[in-house]
Design a binder for these strands. Structure first.
Lengths: 98, 98
DNA sequence: TTGGAATATCGGGAAAATACGATATAAATT
DNA sequence: AATTTATATCGTATTTTCCCGATATTCCAA
């Protein structure tokens, strides 16, 4: 875990918003058919955000590179979900190392 | 605590470095006379960083606005120290809210 | 095998962040 | 009062971030 990249990934309102949505996807993406354990696909997040597809794709990519989310490709869709272990690790880091 | 401002404040290598130094000032500023509970003055941090005085002053200011450090003026000197409560709060936030 | 749908990548313009030198302010000393 | 020391603030050049539209890639379905 690269601290700096993680903090940079968290330094953007759009990305923080997405992380909130992904924390309880059943509350924010009720229309989704796929089980939430798989994640939420890019298009749903994009629609909810009101931003362009490329912007959301890029923001998800930034968070993935930082390790905050993971993705799985299923057919035409890419499902993103939070990497909760990363948040636990970050919490410990902030509490004791930084 | 404004999450976004806190994460922005942590998204810079110079500021992360300073926070590390301030975590155990007795290890990094052995020449200091003032008790470490007071904090470390700007000049010492500046010398150690190798950056300019204005840059370090500004970086300390960013962290203070985010609530990560506090400062006390004593005569000509301004002593900065970590606000450990802010880190504990941030740790909990990362663990449960974000 | 072609067309369409979902996502990723590219290139760029605007805005924000960064670190600098110069200058201002504040406090202590002479 | 004038000088020196420590810190803060200002103006600026450069770099980085952000979001966009356009295009490329990947996969599925007709």
């Amino acid at each position: 875990m690269n601290h700096l990249d993680v903090f940079k990934a968290l330094s953007n309102p759009t990305r923080l918003q997405i992380l909130t949505w992904l924390k309880t996807p059943e509350a924010y993406f009720p229309e989704q058919q796929e089980p939430f354990a798989t994640g939420v696909c890019v298009g749903q997040i994009q629609k909810k955000s009101g931003m362009t597809q490329s912007t959301i794709s890029e923001n998800l990519s930034v968070m993935q590179r930082a390790g905050l989310v993971t993705s799985i490709r299923k057919g035409q869709w890419t499902y993103y979900k939070r990497n909760e272990a990363a948040f636990e690790q970050l919490s410990l880091l902030v509490a004791s190392e930084i």
